[in-house]
Measured scan of single mutants.
Amino acid sequence: PVYLSVKADNSMFIGNDPVTDETMITALNALTEGKKDTTIFFRADKTVDYETLMKVMDTLHQAGYLKIGLVG
């Protein structure tokens, strides 16, 4: 499974590897070998604001990742 996490300080990680807004999709493409039907499990600290969550989800959708599971 692929886990994308947003921490309380808005830092992002794919698994244990830090990513930025600019590198997130490139890292996901490498990890999933470009398979856009891969489910991305998205988790965020409860203090992360809604705007940040939606920005990340919008970026995922624009890149073609449509299977996003929200996890606690």
Results as ranks from 00 to 15, higher is better:
residue 21 D to C: 14
residue 50 Y to A: 11
residue 44 A to N: 04
residue 40 I to W: 01
residue 17 D to E: 14
residue 51 E to Y: 11
residue 56 V to W: 07
residue 37 D to P: 03
residue 68 I to K: 02
residue 1 P to E: 09
residue 10 N to W: 06
residue 2 V to R: 02
residue 59 T to W: 09
residue 48 V to K: 02
residue 66 L to V: 10
residue 62 Q to G: 09
residue 25 I to C: 03
residue 18 P to Y: 08
residue 32 T to M: 06
residue 35 K to A: 08
residue 9 D to W: 07
residue 55 K to W: 13
residue 67 K to F: 11
residue 27 A to F: 13
residue 3 Y to V: 11
residue 32 T to W: 03
residue 46 K to G: 08
residue 40 I to K: 00
residue 35 K to P: 02
residue 39 T to K: 12
residue 55 K to E: 04
residue 4 L to C: 03
residue 21 D to F: 15
residue 61 H to S: 09
residue 59 T to E: 06
residue 41 F to I: 14
residue 6 V to F: 12
residue 18 P to M: 11
residue 64 G to F: 02
residue 11 S to E: 07
residue 7 K to L: 14
residue 34 G to M: 05
residue 40 I to C: 01
residue 38 T to A: 07
residue 29 N to D: 13
residue 52 T to A: 08
residue 47 T to V: 08
residue 20 T to S: 09
residue 59 T to Y: 09
residue 12 M to D: 00
residue 64 G to P: 00
residue 44 A to V: 14
residue 30 A to N: 11
residue 70 L to A: 06
residue 62 Q to L: 11
residue 70 L to H: 08
residue 35 K to H: 10
residue 32 T to I: 04
residue 58 D to G: 11
residue 40 I to E: 00
residue 58 D to A: 14
residue 42 F to T: 02
residue 56 V to N: 02
residue 24 M to W: 07
residue 68 I to A: 04
residue 61 H to R: 15
residue 43 R to N: 10
residue 65 Y to W: 05
residue 64 G to L: 02
residue 60 L to Y: 01
residue 48 V to T: 07
residue 45 D to T: 04
residue 65 Y to I: 01
residue 15 G to N: 15
residue 48 V to S: 04
residue 2 V to I: 14
residue 39 T to D: 06
residue 12 M to A: 02
residue 20 T to M: 03
residue 6 V to D: 00
residue 42 F to N: 00
residue 18 P to N: 06
residue 51 E to H: 12
residue 7 K to V: 06
residue 71 V to T: 08
residue 49 D to E: 12
residue 27 A to S: 09
residue 39 T to V: 14
residue 24 M to Y: 06
residue 71 V to D: 09
residue 53 L to R: 08
residue 50 Y to V: 12
residue 24 M to G: 00
residue 10 N to A: 09
residue 25 I to D: 01
residue 58 D to S: 12
residue 34 G to R: 05
residue 31 L to V: 11
residue 39 T to Q: 15
residue 10 N to Y: 13
residue 60 L to S: 00
residue 30 A to L: 12
residue 21 D to Y: 15
residue 60 L to T: 01
residue 6 V to N: 01
residue 11 S to K: 12
residue 32 T to R: 02
residue 18 P to V: 08
residue 36 K to S: 05
residue 41 F to T: 04
residue 58 D to R: 13
residue 50 Y to Q: 12
residue 30 A to H: 10
residue 28 L to G: 00
residue 16 N to M: 09
residue 34 G to W: 04
residue 25 I to A: 04
residue 62 Q to F: 07
residue 39 T to A: 10
residue 48 V to P: 03
residue 10 N to D: 06
residue 17 D to I: 15
residue 26 T to S: 14
residue 18 P to T: 05
residue 21 D to H: 15
residue 33 E to P: 02
residue 36 K to M: 08
residue 9 D to M: 05
residue 63 A to P: 00
residue 10 N to M: 13
residue 58 D to N: 14
residue 60 L to E: 00
residue 34 G to H: 07
residue 36 K to C: 04
residue 54 M to N: 08
residue 46 K to T: 11
residue 1 P to R: 09
residue 57 M to W: 09
residue 16 N to W: 06
residue 23 T to W: 03
residue 4 L to D: 00
residue 54 M to K: 15
residue 32 T to C: 07
residue 72 G to T: 13
residue 64 G to S: 02
residue 45 D to H: 08
residue 2 V to D: 01
residue 49 D to C: 10
residue 19 V to H: 03
residue 17 D to W: 13
residue 29 N to K: 06
residue 11 S to T: 13
residue 5 S to D: 12
residue 17 D to C: 13
residue 23 T to L: 05
residue 72 G to F: 10
residue 35 K to I: 07
residue 32 T to L: 09
residue 27 A to W: 10
residue 66 L to Q: 10
residue 22 E to L: 10
residue 3 Y to T: 08
residue 49 D to N: 13
residue 17 D to G: 05
residue 39 T to G: 04
residue 8 A to T: 07
residue 40 I to R: 00
residue 72 G to P: 13
residue 41 F to R: 05
residue 16 N to R: 10
residue 9 D to E: 06
residue 68 I to R: 02
residue 8 A to N: 07
residue 60 L to V: 05
residue 49 D to Q: 12
residue 44 A to G: 05
residue 37 D to V: 04
residue 10 N to P: 01
residue 71 V to P: 08
residue 27 A to C: 09
residue 15 G to P: 01
residue 12 M to W: 06
residue 44 A to M: 10
residue 60 L to A: 02
residue 61 H to V: 10
residue 10 N to I: 04
residue 5 S to C: 15
residue 27 A to L: 13
residue 30 A to W: 06
residue 5 S to L: 12
residue 60 L to R: 00
residue 8 A to K: 08
residue 10 N to L: 14
residue 1 P to L: 09
residue 31 L to M: 08
residue 64 G to A: 02
residue 34 G to F: 07
residue 13 F to V: 05
residue 28 L to R: 00
residue 49 D to G: 13
residue 30 A to C: 08
residue 6 V to L: 12
residue 67 K to I: 12
residue 18 P to Q: 12
residue 38 T to F: 07
residue 29 N to Q: 08
residue 3 Y to L: 09
residue 61 H to L: 11
residue 19 V to I: 09
residue 47 T to F: 12
residue 33 E to I: 06
residue 67 K to E: 06
residue 23 T to E: 08
residue 45 D to I: 03
residue 23 T to D: 10
residue 10 N to C: 09
residue 43 R to A: 12
residue 55 K to D: 04
residue 2 V to H: 02
residue 53 L to P: 00
residue 3 Y to Q: 05
residue 31 L to N: 03
residue 3 Y to A: 03
residue 10 N to R: 12
residue 39 T to E: 11
residue 65 Y to H: 01
residue 32 T to D: 02
residue 51 E to D: 10
